[in-house]
């Protein structure tokens, strides 16, 4: 029971939490489109503004939001370094030489610095917005949303409902299996198992006493769940009702306007404001 929390859902009540998951997924896609439509810093500034609004209205602590960037920190640094050192260009954005250093294929230019800043900002916005979705939406309602959005695929006989069911069962079982792992690990530790000592081979072999009972238990649980579902005559073919019906509300309408304004704004800025970049 070391880590009951799983994924990164941050439980609280807020405007963003209450949005329809379908809308949030669509918004994320629109936001990504907006980021890539933005050709200059004005566009990205608009995206940043909207993201700040989302963070403010979601009541997720800023520290948590920033932590989501940590996962891609290496990618961010790598992208920045690549563009600072290898981007040739003659543009001048501030007082000083356009080219700081030019040696072989290495070029440190003003254009390169600006461009790498641009890319880094893009990446950070992308990752942060995506994790805002998972911070404010439980895995279960995320699955519901995906299922609902994929409904059109039913027309081509794609088993949308079964897929969604598999996904939500898998999600539901992750914390249970994590709990189980912890318990089995403790039981074997009590019998003197050591998961830290020894070389790689010994370490890998050390996991057998955890993996065997864990896999057995997963199969046992799967069997039991299947029986329980059969006993209640579950079938995915029939038209099913939902315990929690997804419903668009006035919040989603506001969100929709924000989304439309963002896209429109970015497109306008792309056309009428060329520089910088």
């Amino acid at each position: 029971m070391k880590d009951v929390s799983f994924g990164q859902y941050y439980p609280t009540k807020s405007f963003v939490h209450n949005l329809d998951p379908r809308f949030k997924i669509v918004f994320l896609i629109a936001y990504i489109v907006a980021i890539f439509l933005a050709k200059n810093f004005y566009g990205l500034a608009a995206c940043t503004g909207v993201l700040i609004l989302i963070v403010l209205f979601s009541r997720v602590p800023l520290g948590k939001v920033l932590r989501s960037v940590r996962g891609v920190l290496f990618l961010v640094i790598f992208t920045a370094a690549l563009n600072i050192f290898f981007h040739p260009g003659e543009e001048v954005y501030w007082n000083g030489p356009a080219v700081y250093l030019s040696y072989g294929i290495i070029h440190v230019t003003q254009a390169g610095i600006v461009f790498s800043l641009f890319l880094v900002l893009r990446l950070v916005l992308l990752v942060t917005c995506a994790s805002m979705l998972t911070y404010t939406t439980t895995p279960v309602s995320l699955t519901d949303g995906i299922e609902s959005l994929l409904t059109p695929l039913k027309w081509v006989r794609f088993p949308v409902h079964a897929m969604a069911l598999i996904m939500s069962i898998a999600l539901r079982f992750i914390p249970i299996l994590m709990d189980e792992t912890e318990r089995i690990k403790n039981a074997q530790k009590a019998r003197g198992a050591d998961f830290e000592r020894g070389g790689l081979f010994k370490k890998v072999r050390g996991f057998v006493p955890i993996l065997v009972p864990l896999i057995l238990s997963a199969f046992r649980r799967a069997d039991e769940l299947g029986d329980a579902m059969d006993a209640r005559c579950y079938s995915s073919g029939k038209k099913r009702t939902k315990y929690k019906k997804l419903r668009f509300t006035w919040r989603d309408l506001i969100g929709f306007f924000v989304m439309a304004a963002l896209i429109a704004g970015v497109v306008v800025m792309r056309i009428y404001l060329g520089a910088p970049l």
Binding site: I184, A190, R191, P209, P213, S217
Partner: peptide, 27 residues
């Protein structure tokens, strides 16, 4: 831990070895 043995709830779910002897000898 050698001196303080711990039998968890449903300890049969921690069995893993191929034979009873190997499992008992694990600790």
């Amino acid at each position: 831990r050698r001196h303080v043995g711990m039998v968890f709830q449903y300890p049969e779910y921690q069995l893993f070895a191929e034979t009873v002897k190997a499992d008992v000898a694990f600790g």
